[in-house]
Nucleic acid binder design. Structure first.
Lengths: 213, 213
DNA sequence: AGGTGTGAACACTTTCACAGCA
DNA sequence: TGCTGTGAAAGTGTTCACACCT
């Protein structure tokens, strides 16, 4: 069954959150959970939780709530986590190398299968169980390794060149850590992780409070 | 002049983006910029740019556009970037240490003035020009150093304990890298940086496309 | 009783379209 | 003429309130 309703980006992000809560509840041995409980733990409302879930079907039992294990399974399936994803990482700088060593990706179904950089001095370095490859080999690696998602962790200046290669090689998913908005073809999906924006939104909020009273 | 209109979170995030574009344009020697140019570079629409800016005043000249330097200055002021912020970082693990060495914070007005951890084996370590302090000293450090923002980069299990200390010490701004939703008092502002959510939103989008055709 | 699923009301955001100034 | 600033319209997302099932 494909999803016909317009599914909002917001709902999806919340599903990801619910999933983590469900996994936690599962480890604690909980069998069922109500929309209210999920709401409290995710910082939203019970109605919101039910609306989000109802976008994809009726998973709950009236009067009882949702089965923890079953709902987790359903959400995993919705988010495309019922399979593993092959990921390449471009840019083995501070952020890139921290990501490689992070380990949390594998745990959630994302396998970093290749790491690349432009800097000749970095090529050949070993990180975890991977060797840094020259960005020139990118297209080759994507094809041979079946890479579906690319993590971009290069400085802003290097982004345009990397983007050309990535879209050129037919990769359709990008997780971008560079502080730049990427212009990409319609067919490519980009998600940004931008801590500077978050920090600036934070200092805006703090400044407002200060001036308010 | 304090802002009376309800200012949306979305608008603020875009301002942060516009600012980075303006700085770039400034380095390239551009003197003026139109809402259309800003829109293209930020991946939004000209009307959106004008609406966002008009929330805070009339900064443009009809028929001409906006002065690059002047607009950058105005946005910096709006975002509270016309001053420096004192930041403490809790958790010197993989993500925490990458953030310390990142350097981009200082450049944008955020000074990491203290780093802390619970792990006794890490206490006393030096990172950049800072020494890792015992989390027990947190309240003391916040007071003496005038810490206003705390970056949380500890594992999920450690979050509740850290949160108690942070809110208890009167800190009002938190940048959270831990994969948990923090429950905090009304008076505290939290911004999350959560790459797992972004990755999962990405794999959802890719799965959809696959099933669509 | 207890808790889900959902249309309808409401709130917020974005886009449109154009008046108005340089 | 060129481009801003802004009400009004359209579009999205959230909350309410209640029918309905167990």
């Amino acid at each position: 069954m494909s999803i016909s309703k317009k599914t909002s980006e917001f709902a999806i992000r919340r599903l990801s959150l619910y999933l983590r809560i469900l996994e936690h509840l599962g480890r604690d041995g909980e069998r069922t959970v109500s929309s209210e409980q999920l709401a409290v733990r995710s910082g939203t409302t019970a109605a919101q939780v039910r609306k989000d879930l109802s976008l994809f079907g009726s998973f709950g039992k009236r009067g009882l709530g949702y089965g923890v294990a079953e709902l987790a399974l359903r959400i995993r399936k919705i988010l495309g986590l019922d399979r593993r994803w092959r990921v390449a990482l471009v840019g083995v700088g501070r952020i890139g190398s921290a990501l490689i060593e992070y380990g949390g990706f594998r745990e959630r179904g994302y396998d970093i299968v290749a790491i690349l950089d432009v800097d000749p001095s970095k090529i050949g370095e070993r990180w975890a169980d991977l060797t840094v490859h020259d960005i020139c080999e990118f297209e080759d690696i994507v094809r041979k390794q079946g890479v579906e998602i690319v993590i971009i962790a290069v400085p802003a200046e290097a982004v345009p060149a990397v983007m050309d290669r990535v879209t050129g090689a037919g990769v359709r998913g990008i997780l971008n850590f560079a502080p730049t908005t990427l212009r990409v073809p319609e067919s490519v999906t980009v998600k940004d992780v931008n801590m500077v924006i978050e920090l600036e939104a934070l200092s805006f909020a703090l400044s407002q409070e200060a001036g308010e009273e």
